[in-house]
Design a protein around this nucleic acid. Sequence first.
DNA 1: TCTGGGGTCCTAGGACCC
DNA 2: TCTGGGGTCCTAGGACCC
Length: 401
Amino acid sequence: MEREILHVDVNNAFLSWTAVERLKKGETLDIRTIPAIIGGDEAQRKGVVLAKSSIAKQFGIQTGEPIYFARKKCPSIQIFSSNFSVYRTYSNALYQILLEYTNKIERFSIDECFMDMTGFVPKGRNLLEIAYEINKRVKEELAFTVNVGVAHNKLLAKMASDFQKPDRVHTLFEEEIPTKMWTLPVGELFMVGKKSLPKLQKMGIKTIGDLAHKEEQVMVKTFGKFGKMIWEYSNGIDNSPVCFEEEKPKGIGNSITLPYDYANLEKIEEVLMALVEQVTYRLRIHHMYAQVVNVQIKTNEFKVFSHQRKLDMPTDSTKEIGEEAKKLLKELYKGTPIRLIGVRVDNLCETEEIQLSLFAKDKDDKQKKLDDVVDGLKQKYGYEKVTRATNLQNKFKFKEE
DNA sequence: TCTGGGGTCCTAGGACCC
DNA sequence: TCTGGGGTCCTAGGACCC
């Protein structure tokens, strides 16, 4: 049966939301109307463009590039810092509106939703009307704009919402694929990134249509599973469901780019332990245990190395994960100055699934109680106020959540 | 020029077992 | 002494997304 899918995409989300928040606070300048970007702190070496206004885009400024480049392209560019708790508020407000149309909504990211409208289009109305209504309501009620893609699967809906921006509704039904999608450069296809683009181009594939008309077997032979996927995408094939049920995380990680390159193992360890505390806190918030610990470093030359190890028993203990992380760091660290350090936990399982042996449980008890007390304080007084690495908090700001 | 942080998924090679 | 092949698990690294 044919499905009815919408993809709702907030236009320049971080920048628009920052603009709306400023106006709400009484500022008169709407930063959507000037050359502006949302960017990280350059002094902390986090100076990349996170979002841009459409005018900034006209200067050739790209998301993800260093702010330094953006300033070269547009010396008068105005830079604003990000605020994720504000973004979450607006993201939730959008979600609440969408919930009035269907409960089958997949929150694909903070600023994108897929909606499965199959069976939810009221009698006498059609999917396109609903899409326009959502577009209009969001603008009127929330003061920012969205693009809405209308199609019969997620891939086509997402491609459609990416057509002309901002504040537009686009359809991409099967019969429209040749005119609306095949004519686009192949790099515009979802999942074709900057590594696979040159490989495709070398094969003579310039447009999405070129890819669609290649033999499927050639793509599979050259790119394996990935080749099959993008070949299907180029032909508008995608049977993946809208995953509307909240999914448990498969891994939790935190990393930080250091304000300068660290070459002292003890100093790196201090940061590592602050990150471990953050990660295990989030783990316990989710009521999950982890069985794999992973430590990652990036050298001053931007080379990335990682080590991971599977533990005998899953755990959520700051001490256990911290000790493993320290061992992994020692194995990794060869004395090269470090630009970034990160910790991840993987192979997560629900707390209830754990069957601790009596011995292990007994050993765990003391540490568990300490973690519980600290978590309680963090929830009561805020994460940044309660941490065993207080001296780091002046230098590093960690995202909550 | 100077390059964030949070994820998911895939691949390849080695260890180990039958 | 010389020899197989398949399956699973583990680790490191990489591509892609927002």
